[in-house]
C-alpha cells in the first residue's frame, strides 16, 4: 500500500500537469477543470499518505531530503489550488504543477519514508507544526517567485507588443500580481508560525529562544523581506515589478537556506542531512 501510494501520487500529479500543459500548448481551455479535479484528487491521496505516516511514526515523516520533498510538493499543490480557487481568469497552474511533479517524482525515486521519527526532545506536535509551517512558508515563497517571474514575462510582452503564448494564456497582470501578493502573505504567516514554534523547540532542546544559526538567520531574513513587501504593498501602494522582484529575492534566500545554508553551514538544522 505504501509503495503504491509512493508512486500513485506523482503519477496523478503528472496526469494533471500534462492536462494543464495540453491547454497551454493548444491555447484552448479544454482540460482546465479536469486538471484541477485531478490535482484535488492527487492532493487527497497525498494527504492520506502523509496521514498514514503520521499515525505510523506518531510524528511528521521527516529525516532526509526525500520526505522533505514530498512535504514541499504537498504544500506547493495546496497553495496552487488555494490560489486557483474560484478563479476563472486564466491559470498559472501549468508552471506550478510541473514543480510539484518534479518534487514528488524525486521524492518517489528516493524511496519509502524513514522507519523512525526524527528524535527530538521537543513535543512531536510542536516540532511538527514548526517544520510543517516552515515547509509551507518555503512553498509559498516558491509559488510567489514563480508568479513574480510570470508577471515580469507578461509585463515585458505587453511593453514590447509581443503577442505570444504567454500574452494569450496567462491571467491579466493585475491577477498575477494579486496571486504573488497572496502567496507572499501566506508564506509570511506560515513562517511567522514556524519561527514562533521554532523558538519553543529551541527553549526545550537548547534552553534558549535564539541561536546564531545560519538557517534561522536566512529564514528570518525571508520573513523580514516578506513582511516589508506586504507592508509596502499595503501602506505605500507598491505593486507590479517591485513586488515581483521582492518575491524573487525572498525565494532565492529561502532556496539558499534550504539548499546551501542548511546542509553546509548550519550546525543546528541538518534538515536535508538525514535526521536531526
Amino acid at each position: 500500500m505504501t509503495a503504491l501510494l509512493q508512486w500513485l501520487v506523482p503519477l496523478v500529479y503528472l496526469l494533471g500537469a500534462t492536462l494543464y500543459f495540453s491547454d497551454f500548448w493548444s491555447g484552448a481551455r479544454r482540460w482546465d477543470r479536469v486538471a484541477r479535479g485531478v490535482f484535488w484528487a492527487g492532493l487527497l491521496v497525498h494527504a492520506g499518505r502523509l496521514t498514514m505516516e503520521v499515525f505510523r511514526l506518531d510524528a511528521l515523516p521527516l529525516g532526509g531530503i526525500f520526505p522533505f520533498l514530498t512535504l514541499l510538493s504537498f504544500s506547493v499543490v495546496a497553495v496552487m489550488l488555494f490560489l486557483e480557487m474560484g478563479s476563472s481568469d486564466g491559470s498559472t497552474a501549468v508552471f506550478l504543477a510541473w514543480l510539484a511533479v518534479g518534487l514528488e517524482g524525486c521524492s518517489a525515486v528516493g524511496g519509502p519514508f524513514p522507519q523512525h521519527a526524527v528524535s527530538t526532545a521537543a513535543h512531536p506536535a510542536v516540532f511538527g507544526i514548526h517544520v510543517g509551517t516552515a515547509i509551507l512558508g518555503y512553498a509559498g515563497a516558491a509559488v510567489a517567485a514563480i508568479h513574480g517571474v510570470l508577471y515580469l514575462l507578461l509585463y515585458r510582452e505587453i511593453k514590447s507588443n509581443r503577442v505570444g503564448r504567454i500574452y494569450r494564456f496567462l491571467p491579466p497582470l493585475d491577477q498575477i500580481e494579486k496571486r504573488t501578493g497572496s502567496s507572499v502573505a501566506l508564506s509570511f504567516v506560515a513562517l511567522t508560525v514556524s519561527l514562533v514554534f521554532g523558538m519553543r523547540v529551541l527553549r526545550v532542546t537548547e534552553s534558549t529562544y535564539w541561536l546564531w544559526d545560519a538557517k534561522i538567520l536566512t529564514t528570518c531574513l525571508v520573513w523580514v523581506l516578506f513582511g516589508l513587501t506586504l507592508s509596502s504593498r499595503r501602506w505605500l501602494g507598491w505593486s507590479g515589478r517591485r513586488v515581483a522582484f521582492f518575491s524573487l529575492f525572498g525565494f532565492l534566500l529561502a532556496l539558499a537556506s534550504l539548499g546551501f545554508v542548511g546542509p553546509f553551514l548550519s550546525g543546528f538544522h541538518t534538515f536535508s542531512g538525514g535526521g536531526q
Binding site: 481568469d89 507578461l154 505587453i158 500574452y167 491579466p172 497582470l173 493585475d174 491577477q175
Partner: peptide, 9 residues
Amino acid sequence: ELAERMFGD
C-alpha cells in the same frame, strides 16, 4: 484586449 490583459475585470 490590452486593457483586459493588464487589468482583467
